[in-house]
Design a protein around this nucleic acid. Structure first.
Length: 137
DNA sequence: GCCAACGTTGGC
DNA sequence: GCCAACGTTGGC
């Protein structure tokens, strides 16, 4: 199983909306690398849900429930969506400042590739963040 | 609201 | 194939 991070601006689609919706199609990705990351996701993979711009923190965990398929918001174009369901909110959100402050997270894509909206997370990074979030799955 | 970073586009 | 211009993301 692989780990990922997905970013959303909370004024557009907050984690709470995923909780309400129970399932959502992650559409609108228009970056090749982010799209390729979506295509690498397998059912059952877990993703950290990050609020960009507002909050700037990890707030929850989501699970891949449906693997990549054509993005209906871009008919005829070569983009993909993946389906996610909420797993749980983090007990304590983990802020960008916290991530920056932890040496174990210095290489995270969130920091190194800050403009990439769908990115891989290593198993060790995953562990560190869930510990900081005081969250057990 | 500004601006840095950086991916993409298009002219040559 | 290079590179300048442009658009977008996301932090501040």
């Amino acid at each position: 199983m692989a780990y990922w991070l997905i970013k959303s601006e909370p004024n557009k689609y907050p984690f709470s909306a995923l909780v309400t919706d129970k399932n959502t199609s992650w559409d609108g990705v228009r970056n090749f690398e982010a799209r390729n990351n979506l295509r690498s996701m397998k059912r059952g993979d877990l993703a950290l849900f990050y609020h960009s711009n507002i909050g700037k923190e990890f707030v929850g965990v989501a699970r891949v429930t449906g693997e990549a398929r054509p993005d209906p918001s871009a008919p005829g174009e070569d983009w993909s969506v993946v389906d996610f369901a909420p797993v749980q909110a983090l007990t304590a959100p983990v802020t960008l400042a916290q991530v920056r402050a932890m040496p174990a997270l210095a290489e995270m894509a969130l920091l190194k590739r800050s403009r990439l909206s769908v990115a891989p997370v290593t198993a060790s990074e995953w562990k560190v963040i869930l510990a900081a979030a005081r969250t057990k799955l």
